[in-house]
Amino acid sequence: MNKQIQRKKLSASMLLFEFRNITGNPYIHIFGIGLPVLMVLIFGNVLASNIPDGEMLSKAVTGLFLGLGTMIPLAAMLVGYAATFSQELEKGIPQRLELFGIDQGMTIVSRILAELIFQVCSFVIYFAVGALILRIEAPAVKGLFCYMICIAALGVISFGLAHAVALLFRKFGITYCVTMILYFCIMIVSGMMGIDYEMLPPPVQAAARLLPTHYFVKDFADIWQGREYNFIPMLQAYLFTGALAGVLLFFSLRRRAGKNA
């Protein structure tokens, strides 16, 4: 009797497998949770020592907290996932799984969902630290919802970029190098490393405006409180980075399909 495996399109076991794959990487805990928490505590204390206690400090800490929160999707997806996936490509793991009948499309969907679940877990810890230690401002419902949507969208774009970069280079070393450079450039240009947007030269400011992270650092404290905000520039930044990730992903997938033809 033929007992071939009849696989579902998407399953809880596949999702759990991908989640274990993420959490099994120790660096993801360090860079995806540990580092943002550490940085927000350090910079939060620096702010507290420079700004007198009161509404201004609370707003500054909240702005810092919301901006540094973007490190979670960037570290976990852009750097972490690219590193994991490039190592898998080097070892031929995706091909091995395909030979067992595990569809690549199903793997990607499971991965992105697992990454988003991991992101939610990371933010629970991050927000616990923010609320209990840094005493960030309580959000308006609209602000919280907006932050969640924007972070999720940033995560999806980071995932797409990471997948494309790993597929293009197919080697761990170069993939890790490229994504780390991207990661630090995004953080520096977006003002997460202590350099304000106003201090940047005009061409770099123009580049910063193309990054969604720039708006997290600069403006999200207002959105968080539900204040009136012009979303158009931020939306344009999302569209630009989303399109960039999409185009890169398209070419990298086509290149891979060509190689496997």
Binding site: I5, R20, G24, G92, F100
Partner: peptide, 28 residues
């Protein structure tokens, strides 16, 4: 393709979890 099974010359899997979980997800 599902009716063809293959043991490749080099077979690698993730090192992030025990083999049992890999086996279970591959064999569903």
């Amino acid at each position: 393709p599902r009716q063809i099974a293959t043991h490749m010359q080099f077979n690698e899997y993730t090192d992030a979890m025990p083999c049992k979980y890999i086996m279970e997800v591959i064999l569903d």
